[in-house]
Amino acid sequence: MNITNSRGLSQSVRHSLTMAHRTLLKIRRTPEQLADVTFQPIVFTLMFTYIFGGAIAGNVSSYLPLIIPGLLVMTVITTSIQTGVQLREDMDTGVFNRFKALPIARIAPLAGALLADTVRYFIATTLTIAMGYLMGYRPHAGFGDVVLAGLLVIASAWAMSWIFAFFGVIARTASSVQGISMIILFPLTFLSNALVPSQTMPHWLQIFVKINPISHLVTAIRDLANTGSVNSNLAISLLGAAIVVLIFAPLTVRAYMRKA
């Protein structure tokens, strides 16, 4: 037997892909795990559009170009909380003991979980856009740019999931992961321009909304889907996502290794 004390990069990638495969198998076995990425997009889209549509934009159809990109960001980013919650639940099961004793890359269970969750973001993204389409939303920029917008949301949610994965690794229970994550995400998503234009807000709140990275992401998606324009908001969103990953990926991995 050829025995080494280190793992190559290709091995780490292969182990991570296998762990992602495992997560997908689990989803297939317990499809109710997908409840949040299926019902939430449908219910939120219907609810918020009809509640706010008349008040904010005069009617539903002129609200759709504003709300659909906003809801897309809100819904998909909120979904990424589940990454942390499920990671915590998973780490508490006996099978994680076996992963720890296997000669695999230490990072693989973490990387696999985050990778597999992009499937969840994809479902949430597709359903939100499809719901918008059914309700009459016709993005002017065309199919290609809408796909790009969708990919941008998925990439951002993946970046955000590192934050929640970090809580997942350090927290003691799954419900506390949910709690901490909501406290952070609630103000970020609601104190943004996702649902309403910020002009009617008090001045101090407008300042927060303006610097809130979620607002930049929402604007980037709107511009991309509605007019096909690529601007500084897109650059800021990508930069923000990269910074989150650069900070939280090493933090999470370190915390995870210490526990693993």
Binding site: K26, T30, V95, A101, P103
Partner: peptide
């Protein structure tokens, strides 16, 4: 040398360490 050791051992715990949601 934990990685070397892990290539030489199999561990079966007191509580079954398998994935219960999978077959």
């Amino acid at each position: 040398e934990p990685h070397r050791v892990r290539q030489l051992i199999g561990v079966t715990g007191q509580y079954a360490s398998v994935d219960e949601t999978l077959s």
